[in-house]
Design a protein around this nucleic acid. Sequence first.
DNA 1: AGTTAATCGGATAATTTTATCCGATATCTA
DNA 2: TAGATATCGGATAAAATTATCCGATTAACT
Lengths: 145, 145
Amino acid sequence: MLLSKACEHAVRATIYIGQQSSTEGRVSLKEIAMEIDAPEAFTAKILQQLVKKEIISSIQGPKGGFTMYKKSIRQIKLIDIIHTIDGNAFETKCVLGLKLCSELSPCPVHDQFKHIKKDYLNMLQKTNIQKMILGLEDGVSCLKI
Amino acid sequence: MLLSKACEHAVRATIYIGQQSSTEGRVSLKEIAMEIDAPEAFTAKILQQLVKKEIISSIQGPKGGFTMYKKSIRQIKLIDIIHTIDGNAFETKCVLGLKLCSELSPCPVHDQFKHIKKDYLNMLQKTNIQKMILGLEDGVSCLKI
DNA sequence: AGTTAATCGGATAATTTTATCCGATATCTA
DNA sequence: TAGATATCGGATAAAATTATCCGATTAACT
């Protein structure tokens, strides 16, 4: 699988928070978990990591919740969420698990995966939250089902 | 990560068995595990699955071991190993974990991942064992370090 | 036929990932 | 200032993945 389950939740949550921040205001953990159909407590842990990395921001107390700055909605990319939750193993680790794998000392599938990984990474680095929100606003895409 | 650890072992093992089959004869579990630097008992379990799917073949008893038919070395593709060990989740499951995700009802990153996944799948379907052996023979690539 | 050396296959253990629980902390409202 | 309601953060539990163990089975060799 490309993303861990935690990272799937993280991306869906960030998209939801981003969308709600641009129309409504802050949203509560309960609402987020409900709207992205993810377990509440697990989602809480994931959101904490995103807050620490300043991808989203949180407000404590009653009427608290999570929100996302307009600037972040433009600037935060898919790769930032993935780095926060899953780390950078995709970019650094050999596909076949070899300790040493590089252009000079490649694994047997290095060349085949090179282009795929480059295109994938490129897409992750270009896709911002704003872009992912677009389909939601139109009612074309969905976060729940 | 793209492949599970079990699948990484499976691909490395299959490449090694394929290479040895085309030069030497059959190889033992012990030798395979050593040469691909994977735990022996875990490798055994993985090889069993590959045997059941007829990707490799096994001979019991003393002087037994694992081997691969010349025909298989040409015909078996990366995708076959992945299907055996990791299943077809990559092709069927939504990147964001949505139960329903298709052209008509896409998730917010469906379009972005569409091309990546298509290219990736295409490569997996084209890359056969023979191709992956090539670099090994030349001493360019390696399975161990 | 008996011994030895190999894989097979089912049970079990260790580790990682996913998920939950609950007291501590912050902050809004009355 | 007291009470209610939200996130924070550390501990714990459940599930999945990774890994091991060991007796059963198979087959070569003496």
